[in-house]
Structures are given as C-alpha cells and as structure tokens.
Amino acid sequence: MPRIAPAEPPYAPAIAAELDRIMPTGVEPLLLFRTLARNPRVFARLFAGGLLDRGALSLRQREIVIDRTTARLGCEYEWGVHVAFFADRAGLTDEQVTATAHGGRDAACWPDDERALLALVDDLVDCRTLATETWEGMKAHFDDAQVLEAIALVGYYHTISFLCRGLALPCEPYAARFPAKAGAPDRTVRDKEDDR
C-alpha cells in the first residue's frame, strides 16, 4: 500500500470530472490520481499544470522526455504507466523504450533530434542546468516554444516522480516494468486515442 491511502468513490464532483476526462474508458483511475485526490487543492493544481494536451512538441517527443525523466529519477510507477499508455501510439520501438531507461543519450536507436531531447533531460536531472553543447543541440532541432515545453516537462515530471516515490506507490498492474538491460518491457494498455 502507498503511504497515504487513496480516495475511494464517490469522488467530489470536480475530481470525478477530471478523472473521467483523463482516464481511458474502462480503466480505473490511477493510484497516483486517487492519492492526490486526498488533497483537492494539490489535485487541482497538478491537473491544471499538466502537459498531456497537444503542445509544441509531438506526442513522440513528449513521451521521450517523460519516459527519460521518470526513468532517470527511478520512478518506475510513472515510467510504466506512460510506456503502457503511450509508447505504441508514439511509435517507440521496444529498443527505444528500453533505451529511455538504460541507454546513453547517443544510443544508435535515436535520430539526432531525439538525442538532443535525451541530452536535455540528462543535463537537467544530473546538473539542474543545460551545458552549452546541449543547448546548441536543442536549438539545432527545436524552436523556442519547443525548448521551453521540453524543459517544463522535465520539471513537471520531476515533481510527479517525487510524489510517486515519496508516497511509495506500487506499480499499476498493467504498467510496464523497468526492463533488464537486454530485455524490453511488456506494454499492455493500448486504449483511447490521444485526442487532447
């Protein structure tokens, strides 16, 4: 069990509406969301700050940033949920999914623009800043709006990773697990198009 017991239905109307909006049909709300619902203010603020809608980055670019951030921070819960829900839709191969958790930023499975995203995540997680080389790599492939969104995603999922790990959330039953270096994750949830 997590350190704080998750809320159970019936949820407050505002929380129920958000859970219905974000969760795929027929999938129970995430343990993270139900735990955050114990504090409606935190729940509302985190949902208001979410970046899973259409933005400056493509779905694939967004998921590379999220997967790399959560993996680098050791957050198997959030990494596994994103791999289960989004990896196939984002066109990530099993090799690439594994590389988000174990590969170097220069792994052969990534094109140059995606290597730049990985470098951005690695610099921010490891050094809390961007090296000049990393900045130049990003600017070679992405415009200002995309760079800002990538940095915001790393920050947001840093917070989400802290919540998941601090609350000791067990992985969702359908979520991918961190792969062994030679293996690939099991991706089982392929529901609901990303229509946001």
Rank of each mutant, 00 (worst) to 15 (best):
A99H: 05
T98G: 12
A119C: 11
G183S: 11
T98E: 07
D126P: 09
N39D: 13
V97Y: 01
P24M: 07
G104M: 08
D88A: 15
L31K: 04
A84N: 05
A175F: 03
G166I: 07
A176D: 02
L31F: 04
F47V: 10
Y11C: 02
D112T: 13
E76K: 07
A87D: 01
K192Q: 14
A176K: 00
L120K: 01
T134L: 07
L57I: 11
F43P: 00
T35A: 10
E114F: 03
A168S: 13
R34Y: 04
A145T: 13
R54W: 08
M23V: 10
E18G: 05
L92V: 05
T100Y: 03
M1R: 14
Y174K: 11
E63C: 04
I151Q: 05
D88N: 15
L59S: 07
I151W: 00
T188K: 15
A152R: 10
A150T: 08
L30G: 01
R89S: 15
A168M: 09
W135Y: 14
I15M: 01
P40I: 00
V65S: 03
K139T: 15
A14G: 06
E193R: 15
G91K: 11
R89M: 15
Y77H: 13
A71H: 03
C171H: 10
T100K: 01
E149C: 04
P10H: 11
D106W: 10
R177K: 13
W79Q: 04
I66T: 01
I160Q: 01
L153R: 03
D88Q: 15
A168Y: 06
L120P: 02
A12P: 03
V125Y: 03
L31V: 09
D194A: 14
H102L: 06
P6Y: 05
K192G: 13
K181W: 11
F86H: 09
R177Y: 04
G80Q: 00
L167F: 09
H158F: 07
G49L: 12
R34F: 01
A184S: 12
R115A: 09
F33M: 13
L51R: 12
A17M: 10
H141T: 11
Y11F: 15
